[in-house]
Amino acid sequence: MPSSPSAAEAGQLLAARFRLPLAGRSWRGQAGGWRGAAAGSSIEFREHRNYQAGDDLRHLDWSATARTGQPMLRVYREEVRPSVDLLIDGSGSLALDDDKEHLSRTLAEWVWQASRADGVSLMIWRLSERGCHLIPPEAFSSRELKFSGRALDYQAATLRSGAMRVVISDLLFPGEPRAWLSPLLQSAGGCLLLCPWSPAEAEPDWSGNMDLEDCEAPGTARVLVDERVMSDYRAAYLRHVALWQESCTSLGINLLRLRAGEDPATSFSAAIHQGAIAPCK
């Protein structure tokens, strides 16, 4: 039986098939390999326009000028380098179990690999209870990511204007989703929420007297779990998930929930049609 790939390998494999949904967006910024929103100096023709004083005469299209009788200028598309801000939830819940931790690292690896492949300007922020830590892309290693303690306040992170926001979080914390999501969208060039979840959260193996240890904080809660409690818990969990999904939908955020223990490629393939994930060309 072949051993399962490491998170780095899995992320690399994913990056070979799927990319961030960078296409179709208006990028501005450093020159790069992506069409920008403005005219630029790439070889890709964009349009003709009337000559204006001060335009570079090297871009004058003599054929069009002859055809129209007006001095026409050839305008080429700007080629820019997209920017992506990756926010990684560093709380302990991302490592609730081995599968979820593996998935979380895989997703981070995938974003990093895909960004590198697309020449994306990537900024990586790890969110923890001590604050936001910037991880230089060249020093990033999914293997060295730490998931412990509580998160998740990204206010301290310096998010770039026009950058695509990619968040890896299980979103398991109390609070109003819209209030948490809204600041994320400010001057963002799109937003993608990659949300790993574990079956141990959706349908936990709880029965009778349980000592539940909070994976993000010290302390144990002794809870007597019966059918009624389980039923109430399931309802609360589904309500929580639905609330986040509704909020994301209404705010135009792509929320991609990925089940721990399953191949994320399956979910990615399904998400291509929604535009949440782009296939690799």
């Binding site: 302990g92 007297n209 349980m210 000592d211 818990y233």
Partner: peptide
Amino acid sequence: RKPRRQRSSTLFLLAAAA
């Protein structure tokens, strides 16, 4: 029925139900 010990990431959801 000795209490079983488990890690949980959703205690805030259980608080209202238990």
